[in-house]
Structure formats: structure tokens, C-alpha cells
């Protein structure tokens, strides 16, 4: 909360972005405390990692300092105060924190908690609800991410960038950083794969794995420059990968339809329903991971490829 307040007051946007990263990280810690390990994981990777990088790229393209304030803050404060008071008044009747009898725990949740280990056979209930019970929803969300990637491409496009000669370092000759990052990238990718394929048993899954895998490329880009990373992962491949992820997800659904079951019902994928569920979840998580990775990296390429305004001229 304090971090949030300071972030509002600051004029130096660089500091604001950094504080926002810290704020995201603290939120992730809070989620961990509230038993939401998967969510904490995602928030730490996305909020504290990728969004900070994206905001910094935006600052590079715009201005670091905010203009002096010319407005009267009383009217917005009044509106905010009234809205906040109304919300708190509305929440007076809400159930107590941690109450097991709260309505939110009464309808779907007990069934998911009791039956999902036997029905889906996956210990992580978040994964089984995400991938199996609410498979349609997750397909929709993956498509939203894909569409957002498309929107960024339409708005910015992937341009060549400032540093197109391979072998030229982006941040000067920093030996220690280069060596450390080289070692680190391998572990980051390995970890991403672990998160991808172990998501059924522990915290993690396609969303987190995609983001972490993209992070490895982002770090490579930041240290070794755009040209090198684009030789490893050419931009035109990313669009195909993103589409391939969705195709894999929806294709799994279509295959289950051909096998005589409803769309995205994985029971039909193998002779044993539990095996079918396993296979289905593995496939669609792979689809989600591919799409998320490709879209995040596309967005990053789009931002890093832009030149500063005064360099365009």
C-alpha cells in the first residue's frame, strides 16, 4: 500500500515503474500467503518481470519525466472517495475472511476438490480446473492473448531495431554479466520446461512456462543485442508459433469430437478416462505455453525494435 502511494506521487516515471515492479512482487508474496501458489508464481513472472521490461521499453520511446501537474486534484479525490465509501458500504455484508461457509465455497468448489483427483487424476486442482473443467474458458483466454499480440503487431510492427549487426553487444563490454547470463539462460529454459510439464503435479503450467521461456530470450536480447536473439528466434516464426499453440489446443478439442465425445472432453483420448485426461491436459498446456511464449516475445520484439523518436527524423 505504501509503495502504491509513493508510486502515485513520484514524477520520475523510471522510479514509478520500478516501484510498480516491487508492488507486483509484494502482491505475489501476499498470494503465496493466501494459498494461491499458482497465481503467486504467475504474478511474480508476469507482473514483476515482463510488465516492468515492457514499461521500461515504453519509457525509452517516450519521456522519462512527467510534466508538472497543472490540475486541481480535489474533484478526482472527491469522486474516488465517494466510490470507495460506496464499495466499503456494499462490502459490509460480505462474508468474513477465511470463512469456510462463505457462498463462494458452496457450489462448484467442493466438487472440484473432492472429485478432481479421481476424475482427472491430477494432484494440482488448479491445473485440472483450468485445463479440464474450464477448458473452454482457457481456450478463450488463450485466444485473447493471441489477439492482443496481433493488436500490438498491427500498432507497432516488428521493425529492424537499432542494433542489427550481429555480435555487437547491447550494453557495452561487460564480461561478468555476459558470462553469468550465458549460464543463467540454460537454467531458465530448463526451469520453464519443468514448469510446463510438471504443472499437473506442482504449481505451474502453460501460462507460467510460456512467460518464463520468453524471459530467457528477453534477457539474451538485453545483454547480447537484438540481432543475436533474432537469429535464434526469427520474428516471422513467432506468429506461426502463436497460431500453432491455439491450433494444438483447439485441435485437441476437435479430435475428442471425432472420437465421439463433446468438444474438449479428454476422456475419449485414451482407453482409460484418466489417461485421456492426462494426455489432453498435457497437449493443451503445451498449446497454451507455445502461444503465451510466442505472444510475449512478439510484444517484446515490437517494443525493442522501435527507435527513439529523435532517431527517426
Amino acid at each position: 500500500m505504501v509503495v502504491a502511494l509513493v508510486a502515485i506521487r513520484k514524477n520520475d516515471l523510471f522510479a514509478v515503474v520500478m516501484l510498480f515492479g516491487i508492488y507486483s512482487f509484494l502482491t505475489a508474496v501476499l498470494f503465496m500467503d493466501l494459498d494461491a501458489v499458482d497465481v503467486a508464481f504467475t504474478e511474480a513472472a508476469v507482473g514483476a518481470g515482463i510488465s516492468t521490461v515492457l514499461m521500461l521499453s515504453t519509457l525509452r520511446l517516450t519521456k522519462r519525466y512527467e510534466a508538472a501537474r497543472r490540475r486541481n486534484p480535489i474533484l478526482p479525490l472527491l469522486v474516488v472517495g465517494i466510490t470507495g465509501a460506496a464499495l466499503i458500504y456494499g462490502l459490509m455484508d460480505a462474508p468474513q475472511f477465511g470463512d469456510p461457509m462463505a457462498p463462494v465455497h458452496q457450489h462448484m468448489a467442493p466438487r472440484f476438490i473432492q472429485d478432481s483427483p479421481t476424475e482427472v487424476g491430477v494432484p494440482n486442482m488448479v491445473t485440472s480446473v483450468l485445463a479440464s473443467y474450464r477448458g473452454y474458458d482457457t481456450l478463450g483466454e488463450t485466444t485473447v492473448i493471441f489477439t492482443a499480440g496481433l493488436a500490438v503487431l498491427l500498432l507497432l510492427g516488428i521493425r529492424e531495431g537499432q542494433n542489427t549487426r550481429p555480435g555487437r553487444l547491447a550494453i557495452g563490454d561487460t564480461l561478468v554479466l555476459r558470462v553469468v547470463v550465458k549460464v543463467l539462460i540454460a537454467f531458465i529454459m530448463l526451469y520453464a520446461l519443468y514448469v510446463q510439464f510438471h504443472g499437473d503435479y506442482g504449481a505451474g503450467g502453460g501460462f507460467q512456462a510460456g512467460v518464463i521461456f520468453a524471459t530467457a530470450f528477453v534477457i539474451y536480447d538485453l545483454v547480447f543485442g537484438e540481432a543475436d536473439v533474432r537469429r535464434v528466434m526469427p520474428p516471422h516464426w513467432l506468429g506461426r508459433l502463436a497460431a500453432a499453440g491455439i491450433f494444438l489446443y483447439a485441435g485437441t478439442g476437435v479430435v475428442s469430437m471425432f472420437l465421439g465425445a463433446p468438444f474438449l472432453d479428454y476422456n475419449a483420448l485414451a482407453h482409460d478416462p484418466v489417461h485421456g485426461q492426462h494426455l489432453g491436459i498435457l497437449l493443451i498446456e503445451l498449446g497454451v505455453g507455445t502461444t503465451v511464449f510466442a505472444v510475449i516475445l512478439t510484444i517484446f520484439y515490437a517494443f525493442s525494435g522501435m527507435r527513439r523518436p529523435h532517431q527517426v527524423s
Binding site: L34, D35, A36, D38, V39, T42, E43, V46, G47, I50, S51, L54, M55, S57, T58, V104, H105, M108, A109, F112, I113, M125, V126, V129, L130, R134, D137, T138, E141, V144, I145, A148, G149, A151, V152, L155, L156, G205, F207, G210, V211, V292, V295, I296, I299, A302, F303
Partner: peptide, 26 residues
């Protein structure tokens, strides 16, 4: 166990959130 349903909803919302934030920033 804590309720897994809100976790699922928010997990996807975070990733969708960063994608839409990127659209806003662009």
C-alpha cells in the same frame, strides 16, 4: 484446501492482463 476456482480465474487474468497492458503501451 483453499478454493481453486478463484485461483484459476486470476491466473489466466494476469496473463491476459499483461497482454492487454502491452496493447495499451503500444
Amino acid at each position: 484446501y483453499s478454493n481453486p476456482v478463484p485461483h484459476v480465474l486470476m491466473l489466466t487474468a494476469i496473463v491476459v492482463g499483461v497482454a492487454t497492458t502491452a496493447v495499451g503501451l503500444s
